[in-house]
Amino acid sequence: MGDEVSGTGKRKDGRRWAVGGGWWSGVVVFAAVAALAAIWVASQQREEDAAWARIRLTGVLRLATDASYPPFAAVDENGELFGFDIDLAEALGRRLRVRVEFENIAYDALLAAVVSGRNDVVISAFAPQPDKLDEAAFTRPYFVSGTVAVVKEEGGRKKKEGGSWADWARGQRLAVEYGAGGDVAARQWARQLAGQQAAGVTVLPQPTAQDALLTLVNGAADAALVDAVTAYEFLRSQPGLALAGPPVEPEPYVIAVSARSRELLLALNRALAEMEADGTLPDLRAKWFGEAAR
């Protein structure tokens, strides 16, 4: 039978794509395969889109958040949720034309809430977890946290322009929060540069991130390596300071959905991209974290 089919898609006798019996059998096979594929795709879509279909039907987006992490999400004295994540959720709801119902859930249980179908999305300063991709999916980042380097704008340590962070840190006094990510990074740079003839790094551990930033302000350090949220808060009240560059160790925050919620994921990604482009998202970041986070 193999002799009957050429690489050009024609039989040697000139007839097209005959398999087995007459031409009609090819059509039947093709139609059957197409029908099966359509049924499979439809069934997949029905399964994957169940959450999205229900959201469109009811007009309600069921959101899980752990409201214990201000300024992302917290509970005020009246029991109302507030914070950047809450504002973001409301803005997304308006864009998707749905009402957002919030549920306050412990951080440990957030992912299970969407995997089980109890909630549709998690918006809760949540970092993507690569080992959970078989059960969850994650949007593009809407905020980048992690460790950042803060410097003085005038007469202070230069901003990072190319090269590695270890090169940038060479010869500098770096104030860090003892034991935190900035401390780990600074000690690592110090070890890397220790064997070289050029100046190394002086690490100045401080009890808190605030203390590290004050060490910079007081002139006892050339830069402070602290977590982004603390840095943004500090920069709002301390003019003359700036970030030295992008986060040293970025930690993106994303929206989590069930791995089955493909349509919902697409809709959220579209909305986030639009909000980034039209300034909605930068404005929200600036509102809660200051201009440095815009």
Partner: peptide
């Protein structure tokens, strides 16, 4: 634990 994000965590100095 010294995660800045987990409610049952402490700051790194306290953890040490």
């Amino acid at each position: 634990n010294d995660s800045p994000r987990w409610t049952h965590a402490v700051r790194p100095l306290a953890r040490i």
